[in-house]
Protein backbone atom coordinates (compact mmCIF):
# COMPACT_ATOMS: atom_id res chain seq x y z
CA UNK A 1 0.00 0.00 0.00
CA UNK A 2 1.66 3.15 -1.15
CA UNK A 3 -0.14 6.28 -0.15
CA UNK A 4 -0.52 9.09 -2.62
CA UNK A 5 1.49 11.45 -0.51
CA UNK A 6 4.01 8.99 0.85
CA UNK A 7 6.44 8.27 -1.94
CA UNK A 8 6.91 11.81 -2.96
CA UNK A 9 10.54 12.11 -2.15
CA UNK A 10 11.68 11.44 -5.71
CA UNK A 11 12.20 15.02 -6.67
CA UNK A 12 12.59 18.37 -5.05
CA UNK A 13 9.43 19.62 -6.68
CA UNK A 14 7.33 16.79 -5.23
CA UNK A 15 8.84 17.27 -1.80
CA UNK A 16 8.12 20.97 -1.87
CA UNK A 17 4.54 20.23 -2.88
CA UNK A 18 4.00 17.74 -0.10
CA UNK A 19 5.54 20.02 2.50
CA UNK A 20 3.31 22.90 1.44
CA UNK A 21 0.18 20.76 1.80
CA UNK A 22 1.25 19.70 5.27
CA UNK A 23 2.56 23.05 6.40
CA UNK A 24 -0.42 25.28 5.69
CA UNK A 25 -3.08 23.57 7.85
CA UNK A 26 -0.45 22.55 10.40
CA UNK A 27 0.81 26.08 10.96
CA UNK A 28 -2.71 27.47 11.04
CA UNK A 29 -3.74 25.04 13.78
CA UNK A 30 -0.54 25.59 15.75
CA UNK A 31 -1.07 29.32 15.65
CA UNK A 32 -4.82 29.59 16.14
CA UNK A 33 -5.60 26.47 18.11
CA UNK A 34 -2.64 25.27 20.14
CA UNK A 35 -1.09 28.65 20.95
CA UNK A 36 -4.38 30.02 22.39
CA UNK A 37 -4.57 27.07 24.77
CA UNK A 38 -1.04 27.59 25.95
CA UNK A 39 -1.95 31.20 26.63
CA UNK A 40 -5.00 30.12 28.64
CA UNK A 41 -2.74 27.84 30.64
CA UNK A 42 -0.32 30.69 31.19
CA UNK A 43 -3.01 33.15 32.28
CA UNK A 44 -4.56 30.63 34.64
CA UNK A 45 -1.24 30.76 36.50
CA UNK A 46 -1.20 34.55 36.72
CA UNK A 47 -2.57 36.96 39.32
CA UNK A 48 -5.53 39.14 38.46
CA UNK A 49 -4.75 42.85 38.44
CA UNK A 50 -6.76 45.92 37.52
CA UNK A 51 -5.20 46.77 34.19
CA UNK A 52 -5.49 46.04 30.51
CA UNK A 53 -5.03 43.07 30.12
CA UNK A 54 -6.18 42.22 33.64
CA UNK A 55 -3.51 39.73 34.70
CA UNK A 56 0.16 39.77 35.69
CA UNK A 57 2.71 38.86 33.05
CA UNK A 58 4.31 35.45 33.24
CA UNK A 59 7.82 36.71 32.59
CA UNK A 60 9.01 39.76 34.38
CA UNK A 61 12.22 41.60 33.82
CA UNK A 62 13.90 42.23 37.11
CA UNK A 63 16.27 45.12 37.78
CA UNK A 64 19.46 43.29 36.87
CA UNK A 65 18.02 42.41 33.47
CA UNK A 66 17.33 38.71 34.03
CA UNK A 67 13.91 37.25 33.47
CA UNK A 68 12.04 35.42 36.17
CA UNK A 69 8.84 33.44 35.92
CA UNK A 70 5.90 34.37 38.07
CA UNK A 71 3.37 31.65 38.56
CA UNK A 72 0.70 31.14 41.14
CA UNK A 73 -1.66 28.30 41.77
CA UNK A 74 -3.99 30.61 43.66
CA UNK A 75 -6.64 30.46 40.95
CA UNK A 76 -6.79 26.68 41.12
CA UNK A 77 -6.81 26.72 44.92
CA UNK A 78 -9.63 29.23 44.73
CA UNK A 79 -11.62 26.83 42.53
CA UNK A 80 -11.23 24.05 45.06
CA UNK A 81 -11.95 26.23 48.05
CA UNK A 82 -15.05 27.85 46.64
CA UNK A 83 -17.68 25.11 46.66
CA UNK A 84 -19.66 27.00 43.97
CA UNK A 85 -17.37 25.67 41.25
CA UNK A 86 -17.49 22.13 42.50
CA UNK A 87 -21.29 22.25 42.67
CA UNK A 88 -21.41 23.77 39.20
CA UNK A 89 -19.27 21.01 37.71
CA UNK A 90 -21.45 18.36 39.31
CA UNK A 91 -24.61 20.14 38.23
CA UNK A 92 -23.41 20.41 34.59
CA UNK A 93 -22.55 16.71 34.51
CA UNK A 94 -25.92 15.85 36.06
CA UNK A 95 -27.92 18.01 33.63
CA UNK A 96 -25.98 16.69 30.62
CA UNK A 97 -26.20 13.08 31.82
CA UNK A 98 -29.94 13.05 32.52
CA UNK A 99 -30.79 14.78 29.24
CA UNK A 100 -28.57 12.32 27.35
CA UNK A 101 -30.38 9.35 28.91
CA UNK A 102 -33.79 10.87 28.19
CA UNK A 103 -32.76 11.64 24.60
CA UNK A 104 -31.59 8.04 24.21
CA UNK A 105 -34.95 6.74 25.44
CA UNK A 106 -36.79 9.00 22.98
CA UNK A 107 -34.31 8.67 20.12
CA UNK A 108 -33.87 4.90 20.13
CA UNK A 109 -37.44 3.96 19.11
CA UNK A 110 -37.40 6.75 16.51
CA UNK A 111 -34.12 5.55 15.00
CA UNK A 112 -35.44 1.99 15.09
CA UNK A 113 -38.68 3.02 13.41
CA UNK A 114 -36.83 4.85 10.66
CA UNK A 115 -34.40 1.96 10.08
CA UNK A 116 -37.33 -0.47 9.71
CA UNK A 117 -39.35 1.72 7.34
CA UNK A 118 -39.63 0.83 3.65
CA UNK A 119 -37.12 2.64 1.41
CA UNK A 120 -38.77 5.82 0.05
CA UNK A 121 -40.30 6.67 3.45
CA UNK A 122 -36.99 6.01 5.18
CA UNK A 123 -35.14 8.66 3.19
CA UNK A 124 -37.87 11.24 3.81
CA UNK A 125 -37.93 10.52 7.55
CA UNK A 126 -34.16 10.76 7.68
CA UNK A 127 -34.25 14.09 5.87
CA UNK A 128 -36.84 15.26 8.41
CA UNK A 129 -34.44 14.42 11.25
CA UNK A 130 -31.64 16.31 9.53
CA UNK A 131 -33.53 19.53 8.68
CA UNK A 132 -33.84 20.82 12.29
CA UNK A 133 -30.11 20.18 12.66
CA UNK A 134 -29.42 22.77 9.96
CA UNK A 135 -31.77 25.37 11.44
CA UNK A 136 -30.05 27.81 13.77
CA UNK A 137 -29.52 26.36 17.23
CA UNK A 138 -30.30 29.71 18.82
CA UNK A 139 -33.63 30.04 17.02
CA UNK A 140 -34.68 26.52 17.97
CA UNK A 141 -33.97 27.22 21.63
CA UNK A 142 -35.81 30.52 21.29
CA UNK A 143 -38.85 28.69 19.90
CA UNK A 144 -39.26 26.98 23.27
CA UNK A 145 -39.35 30.28 25.16
CA UNK A 146 -42.73 31.09 23.66
CA UNK A 147 -44.02 27.62 24.45
CA UNK A 148 -42.79 27.36 28.03
CA UNK A 149 -43.62 30.87 29.26
CA UNK A 150 -46.02 31.15 32.20
CA UNK A 151 -48.58 32.71 29.87
CA UNK A 152 -47.17 30.66 27.00
CA UNK A 153 -48.65 28.20 24.57
CA UNK A 154 -48.13 25.00 26.58
CA UNK A 155 -49.72 26.41 29.71
CA UNK A 156 -52.55 27.86 27.62
CA UNK A 157 -53.15 24.47 26.05
CA UNK A 158 -53.01 22.57 29.36
CA UNK A 159 -55.38 25.06 31.00
CA UNK A 160 -57.72 24.85 28.03
CA UNK A 161 -58.03 21.06 28.13
CA UNK A 162 -58.35 21.26 31.89
CA UNK A 163 -55.39 19.15 33.09
CA UNK A 164 -54.16 21.97 35.30
CA UNK A 165 -55.95 24.94 36.81
CA UNK A 166 -52.82 26.96 37.63
CA UNK A 167 -50.20 27.79 35.02
CA UNK A 168 -47.02 25.79 35.58
CA UNK A 169 -43.72 27.49 36.23
CA UNK A 170 -41.66 26.10 33.35
CA UNK A 171 -39.49 28.72 31.70
CA UNK A 172 -36.35 29.61 33.68
CA UNK A 173 -36.27 26.26 35.48
CA UNK A 174 -34.17 23.10 35.12
CA UNK A 175 -37.11 21.39 33.42
CA UNK A 176 -36.90 23.91 30.59
CA UNK A 177 -33.15 23.22 30.29
CA UNK A 178 -33.81 19.47 30.00
CA UNK A 179 -36.44 20.05 27.31
CA UNK A 180 -34.13 22.42 25.44
CA UNK A 181 -31.19 20.01 25.61
CA UNK A 182 -33.18 17.01 24.42
CA UNK A 183 -34.77 19.05 21.66
CA UNK A 184 -31.51 20.55 20.41
CA UNK A 185 -29.43 17.39 20.51
CA UNK A 186 -32.02 14.78 19.49
CA UNK A 187 -30.75 14.62 15.86
CA UNK A 188 -27.21 13.95 17.20
CA UNK A 189 -28.64 10.98 19.08
CA UNK A 190 -30.87 9.63 16.31
CA UNK A 191 -28.36 9.72 13.43
CA UNK A 192 -25.65 7.42 14.87
CA UNK A 193 -28.33 5.09 16.25
CA UNK A 194 -29.96 4.95 12.82
CA UNK A 195 -26.62 4.31 11.09
CA UNK A 196 -26.09 1.38 13.43
CA UNK A 197 -29.62 -0.08 13.35
CA UNK A 198 -29.81 0.20 9.57
CA UNK A 199 -26.84 -2.15 9.21
CA UNK A 200 -28.37 -4.69 11.56
CA UNK A 201 -28.75 -8.05 9.82
CA UNK A 202 -32.49 -8.84 9.79
CA UNK A 203 -31.71 -12.53 9.35
CA UNK A 204 -30.35 -12.63 12.89
CA UNK A 205 -33.68 -11.38 14.22
CA UNK A 206 -35.56 -13.92 12.09
CA UNK A 207 -33.31 -16.70 13.30
CA UNK A 208 -33.91 -15.72 16.91
CA UNK A 209 -37.68 -15.69 16.53
CA UNK A 210 -37.61 -18.96 14.54
CA UNK A 211 -35.82 -20.49 17.48
CA UNK A 212 -38.70 -19.44 19.69
CA UNK A 213 -37.60 -16.14 21.17
CA UNK A 214 -40.39 -13.78 22.04
CA UNK A 215 -40.39 -10.34 20.47
CA UNK A 216 -39.15 -8.72 23.66
CA UNK A 217 -36.40 -11.33 23.97
CA UNK A 218 -35.29 -10.77 20.39
CA UNK A 219 -34.94 -7.09 21.14
CA UNK A 220 -33.24 -7.55 24.48
CA UNK A 221 -30.85 -10.35 23.44
CA UNK A 222 -30.09 -9.51 19.78
CA UNK A 223 -30.99 -5.97 18.71
CA UNK A 224 -29.94 -4.13 21.84
CA UNK A 225 -26.48 -5.75 22.29
CA UNK A 226 -25.70 -5.27 18.59
CA UNK A 227 -26.62 -1.59 18.76
CA UNK A 228 -24.31 -0.76 21.68
CA UNK A 229 -21.74 1.00 19.42
CA UNK A 230 -24.52 3.25 18.09
CA UNK A 231 -25.72 3.96 21.63
CA UNK A 232 -22.21 4.91 22.75
CA UNK A 233 -21.64 7.11 19.70
CA UNK A 234 -24.98 8.90 20.12
CA UNK A 235 -24.49 9.45 23.85
CA UNK A 236 -20.95 10.83 23.34
CA UNK A 237 -22.09 13.14 20.55
CA UNK A 238 -24.73 14.57 22.86
CA UNK A 239 -23.09 14.42 26.28
CA UNK A 240 -19.81 16.14 25.36
CA UNK A 241 -21.27 19.35 23.89
CA UNK A 242 -24.08 19.36 26.47
CA UNK A 243 -21.65 19.70 29.40
CA UNK A 244 -20.21 22.96 28.12
CA UNK A 245 -23.53 24.30 26.84
CA UNK A 246 -24.07 28.03 27.23
CA UNK A 247 -27.06 29.11 25.12
CA UNK A 248 -29.65 26.71 26.55
CA UNK A 249 -29.09 27.45 30.27
CA UNK A 250 -28.75 31.18 29.48
CA UNK A 251 -32.09 31.37 27.66
CA UNK A 252 -34.20 28.67 29.30
CA UNK A 253 -32.58 28.15 32.69
CA UNK A 254 -33.20 30.06 35.88
CA UNK A 255 -30.71 31.99 37.98
CA UNK A 256 -30.09 28.81 39.97
CA UNK A 257 -29.39 26.63 36.90
CA UNK A 258 -25.67 26.15 37.35
CA UNK A 259 -23.79 25.11 34.25
CA UNK A 260 -20.09 25.46 33.81
CA UNK A 261 -20.27 27.14 30.41
CA UNK A 262 -22.48 29.84 31.85
CA UNK A 263 -20.33 30.36 34.95
CA UNK A 264 -17.27 30.68 32.72
CA UNK A 265 -19.00 33.20 30.47
CA UNK A 266 -20.15 35.28 33.47
CA UNK A 267 -16.80 35.04 35.25
CA UNK A 268 -15.19 36.39 32.13
CA UNK A 269 -17.61 39.09 31.00
CA UNK A 270 -19.28 40.21 34.24
CA UNK A 271 -16.56 39.72 36.87
CA UNK A 272 -13.73 40.27 34.37
CA UNK A 273 -11.62 37.80 36.32
CA UNK A 274 -9.62 36.38 33.43
CA UNK A 275 -7.20 34.22 35.48
CA UNK A 276 -10.01 32.43 37.31
CA UNK A 277 -11.97 32.00 34.07
CA UNK A 278 -8.84 30.48 32.51
CA UNK A 279 -8.41 28.11 35.44
CA UNK A 280 -12.08 27.05 35.09
CA UNK A 281 -11.43 26.42 31.38
CA UNK A 282 -8.33 24.31 32.04
CA UNK A 283 -10.12 22.16 34.60
CA UNK A 284 -13.08 21.70 32.25
CA UNK A 285 -10.76 20.65 29.40
CA UNK A 286 -9.11 18.10 31.68
CA UNK A 287 -12.52 16.78 32.78
CA UNK A 288 -13.56 16.35 29.14
CA UNK A 289 -10.32 15.16 27.60
CA UNK A 290 -9.26 12.58 30.17
CA UNK A 291 -12.38 10.38 29.78
CA UNK A 292 -12.11 10.62 25.97
CA UNK A 293 -8.44 9.58 26.00
CA UNK A 294 -9.31 6.78 28.42
CA UNK A 295 -12.12 5.50 26.19
CA UNK A 296 -9.99 5.62 23.06
CA UNK A 297 -7.18 3.76 24.78
CA UNK A 298 -9.64 1.14 25.94
CA UNK A 299 -11.09 0.81 22.46
CA UNK A 300 -7.64 0.39 20.98
CA UNK A 301 -6.77 -2.27 23.53
CA UNK A 302 -9.91 -4.31 23.00
CA UNK A 303 -9.06 -5.90 19.64
CA UNK A 304 -5.74 -7.04 21.08
CA UNK A 305 -7.30 -8.79 24.04
CA UNK A 306 -9.90 -10.42 21.80
CA UNK A 307 -7.47 -11.85 19.33
Amino acid sequence: MSGLLINLDNSFRDRLWKNTIVAIPYLWLLLFFLAPFLIVLKISLADPIVAQPPFTPLFQESENGSFSIFTTFDNYLYLFQDSLYFITYLSSVKLAFISTILALLIGYPIAYGIARSPQPTRNILLLMVVIPFWISFLLRVYAWMGILKTKGLLNGFLLWIGIIDQPLELLYTDTAVYIGMIYSYLPFMILPLYANLEKLDVRLLEAASDLGAKRWEVFKDVTLPLSVPGIIAGCCLMFIPAIGEYVIPALLGGADTLMIGRVLFDEFFLNRDWPVASAVAIVLVLLLVLPIVYFQKKQNEEPLTES
Partner: peptide, 18 residues
Protein backbone atom coordinates in the same frame (compact mmCIF):
# COMPACT_ATOMS: atom_id res chain seq x y z
CA UNK B 1 -14.87 18.91 17.57
CA UNK B 2 -15.19 18.10 21.26
CA UNK B 3 -14.06 21.40 22.76
CA UNK B 4 -16.87 23.39 24.41
CA UNK B 5 -17.45 26.63 22.50
CA UNK B 6 -16.94 28.72 25.63
CA UNK B 7 -13.40 27.43 25.97
CA UNK B 8 -12.47 27.84 22.29
CA UNK B 9 -13.84 31.37 22.42
CA UNK B 10 -12.05 32.25 25.64
CA UNK B 11 -8.75 30.83 24.36
CA UNK B 12 -8.93 32.71 21.08
CA UNK B 13 -9.81 36.00 22.75
CA UNK B 14 -6.93 35.71 25.21
CA UNK B 15 -4.68 34.84 22.27
CA UNK B 16 -5.77 37.87 20.25
CA UNK B 17 -5.36 40.17 23.25
CA UNK B 18 -1.86 38.85 23.98
Amino acid sequence: LVMPEVITGLALLLFFVS
